[in-house]
Design a protein around this nucleic acid. Structure first.
Lengths: 200, 200
DNA sequence: TCATATATTGAACACTCATTCAATATTATA
DNA sequence: TATAATATTGAATGAGTGTTCAATATATGA
């Protein structure tokens, strides 16, 4: 049990960082504030994360891990049953739990950093590559999509999903929100249907 | 000529703010730095923009105006010729000039603010509502799309465009970038075609 | 030309920032 | 138990933050 306390503290600090960023914004969250929130001096924060840049890049790893966790249930389903319904998966992409587990504000703040930080850019790219490959696997195991360009299809689906969340984040009214979700979902279904038709 | 100097200084300050945000990031651009960049004391900056919040919200107005300006040529074409080719418009959405005129880093940094500032959220929403309505007009005047739900179609197209830029921003390799642009463009063309078919 | 409004300056404010460091407490290892 | 490694503390640093204010320069309108 050498690095156990260390690992726990690190996790605690990153989660505190995430919590405060969610509450007050990434740019308004300082090392001192994280320390205060956890009841420890700022110097202890810096003992585990020597610079703020390192702290931020760890926050991003944490966020991208969280992002991936949302897909975990379906990944397991795919591994055990060796099959997953694309439509069910698409539904889960647009499900509400999403927003409960995940804060889009922090996510977009971190995303904005890719434009001035190549390491962060790479990490974001890696995550999305993985997600796309995963959806491709689901599509590959679907009979109705045999001999289709599932790579392209996966890309097309995710473009709609990301664009959808971009737009949905601006909507306050619940009815409008729900209606738009249905439209976007239908748009993805259309993509799946179109490919099926090509197959026939 | 009452508020002329005032208007010019304000413009100068906002453009300096934008320039520095592009260079070093929105969160790293202070009032002092803007002043230094323009050769004026920070107090003069605050004379025209009493608080930093006001300064930021003016930067956002500026950015959204810039965003809109990209569409100006097509808007004029529509007004004079009373018609515009949807495909040409889609092409312009994916054109390179875009990225030259506009910095996505600053745009996304500002976008991230909508999650904690309702006024900014409203401004962003207003911009996108306007753009969608404008595309709808173009589609409405296209014969091949008669009796179609052009509002929905416009929404579907913009979702692809926004999602596309989200993904494209992560790509460094030029060939990969171009290939993906072509795919996304094709995806939008498909949307237009699909609706045409429904019409026949 | 004189009074008034606007533009501009420079110094100062309290506060927060990330970071450093030496000292101490706690834990793990031998 | 003694030693070494790790965890934690608290105080201090200088630089930067947004903001205030009184003083001065410049332009505008009567």
């Amino acid at each position: 049990m050498k690095g156990k306390i260390s690992a726990e503290r690190k996790k605690e600090i990153i989660e505190g960082f995430y919590y405060l960023s969610k509450e007050n914004g990434l740019e308004n969250t300082s090392i001192a504030k994280i320390g205060k929130h956890l009841g420890i001096p700022p110097s202890l924060v810096m003992h585990y994360f020597p610079t703020k840049d390192i702290l931020i890049s760890n926050l991003i790893s944490y966020i991208l891990d969280q992002y991936l966790k949302i897909y975990e249930p379906v990944i397991k389903e795919l591994e055990t049953k060796n099959h997953a319904d694309p439509k069910t998966f698409v539904d889960s992409l647009f499900s509400r739990e999403w927003n409960l587990l995940f804060d889009d504000g922090v996510f977009y703040s971190c995303y904005a950093l890719i434009f001035r930080n190549d390491v962060i850019k790479k990490e974001y790219r890696k995550l999305h590559d993985r997600l796309r490959e995963f959806l491709k696997e689901i599509l590959d195991r679907d009979e109705s999509l045999k001999n289709q360009d599932t790579q392209l299809l996966a890309e097309q689906i995710f473009v709609v999903v990301e664009g959808a969340y971009y737009y949905l984040s601006m909507i306050d009214n619940e009815d409008t929100y729900n209606k738009k979700v249905e439209n976007f979902k239908e748009q993805v279904y259309d993509l799946l249907r179109k490919k099926e038709e090509q197959h026939l």
